[in-house]
Simulated scan of single mutants.
Amino acid sequence: MYTDADAAALYDLVNRWDPGQWPSDAFYDELVGAAGSVLDVGCGTGAMLHLARAHGHRGRLVGLDPDPAALARARRRPDIEWVEGTAADARWDAAFDLATMTGHAFQCLVTDAELGASLAAVHRALRSGGRFVFETRHPQARAWEGWNPSAASGLVDAAGRALRLWHETEFVIGDVVTFTGTTATADGTVLRVDRTRLRFLAEEVLDAFLTEAGFMIEARYGDWDGGLVTGTSREIITVARRR
């Protein structure tokens, strides 16, 4: 068995938060550093907020995530608030200058009801003029077509185990993609399979949800260098402001 705690530790190894290496991390790191108070929705193991505090952020930092194993790792840093729950569970009222959803976590909001409730809760948690910043994979890039065992990667985890990791698309219904993530030994013995659904929203659909929740679009980028969304963009990066 590869436990939830093992998986959380592996996530940190595979997805190191490093603004010096990854433009996406640098993009968020700058926003967090400039905000007086931050709510990180879907914070996972808390790496973004850990680094912000380590670099001297003095304001309120709160991480919200439904995964107890991820939060157990996040709580290694006690000078940040960690809350177990989903985006829709957010119960703050005008408490934050900035809310974020990194790592394509926004795409885990699959149904219209989830999207509506989550955006309403994030909107309520922000102060007037506060910003909600997140990214989604652009559906035109059809990222799911590259998710198959032939793209498996190998690595050694923190416990010294040699592993193979891969994603495999199961089916696509409308704008929702269902896929599995497999963790196996180097010889292919499967240790763990996790099934996930992600929603790939077109810009106009995304913007309708944001408008309905009371947000205005302040900025929209197609890459982490601030380029416009084009016919070849792989990302939809959104800066939305609470009206």
Rank of each mutant, 00 (worst) to 15 (best):
residue 166 W to Q: 06
residue 140 Q to S: 04
residue 179 F to D: 00
residue 139 P to K: 03
residue 183 T to V: 15
residue 145 E to P: 06
residue 150 S to N: 10
residue 170 E to V: 02
residue 135 E to H: 03
residue 164 R to I: 13
residue 171 F to I: 00
residue 180 T to H: 13
residue 188 G to K: 03
residue 180 T to F: 07
residue 168 E to Q: 11
residue 140 Q to L: 03
residue 132 F to K: 05
residue 143 A to Y: 03
residue 161 R to F: 09
residue 145 E to D: 06
residue 170 E to R: 13
residue 158 A to C: 11
residue 136 T to L: 02
residue 163 L to S: 10
residue 170 E to N: 09
residue 151 A to P: 07
residue 147 W to G: 05
residue 178 T to Y: 07
residue 162 A to M: 04
residue 174 G to N: 07
residue 143 A to H: 01
residue 179 F to Q: 02
residue 154 G to I: 06
residue 156 V to M: 05
residue 159 A to W: 10
residue 140 Q to H: 09
residue 150 S to L: 12
residue 176 V to K: 11
residue 149 P to F: 07
residue 150 S to Q: 12
residue 159 A to D: 14
residue 179 F to I: 02
residue 178 T to K: 06
residue 136 T to C: 05
residue 164 R to G: 03
residue 180 T to V: 15
residue 186 A to P: 00
residue 152 A to I: 06
residue 170 E to C: 00
residue 148 N to L: 10
residue 163 L to V: 04
residue 157 D to S: 00
residue 140 Q to I: 12
residue 168 E to S: 11
residue 161 R to L: 13
residue 177 V to M: 04
residue 182 T to H: 10
residue 172 V to H: 06
residue 138 H to E: 12
residue 171 F to C: 07
residue 137 R to D: 04
residue 182 T to M: 11
residue 180 T to R: 15
residue 138 H to Q: 03
residue 170 E to I: 07
residue 169 T to L: 03
residue 137 R to C: 09
residue 185 T to R: 15
residue 174 G to I: 08
residue 185 T to S: 14
residue 137 R to V: 05
residue 142 R to C: 10
residue 176 V to E: 08
residue 188 G to E: 04
residue 177 V to K: 01
residue 149 P to R: 09
residue 179 F to C: 10
residue 142 R to F: 00
residue 144 W to I: 09
residue 168 E to Y: 05
residue 173 I to D: 15
residue 167 H to W: 15
residue 178 T to Q: 14
residue 186 A to Y: 12
residue 167 H to S: 15
residue 172 V to R: 11
residue 147 W to E: 07
residue 178 T to V: 11
residue 149 P to S: 06
residue 167 H to L: 15
residue 164 R to H: 05
residue 139 P to C: 04
residue 177 V to S: 04
residue 136 T to D: 05
residue 185 T to C: 14
residue 149 P to H: 01
residue 186 A to I: 08
residue 163 L to C: 03
residue 181 G to R: 15
residue 189 T to S: 13
residue 157 D to E: 12
residue 145 E to F: 07
residue 185 T to V: 07
residue 168 E to A: 02
residue 177 V to R: 09
residue 139 P to G: 10
residue 141 A to E: 04
residue 178 T to A: 13
residue 161 R to I: 08
residue 144 W to L: 12
residue 143 A to L: 06
residue 155 L to I: 05
residue 172 V to K: 09
residue 163 L to Y: 09
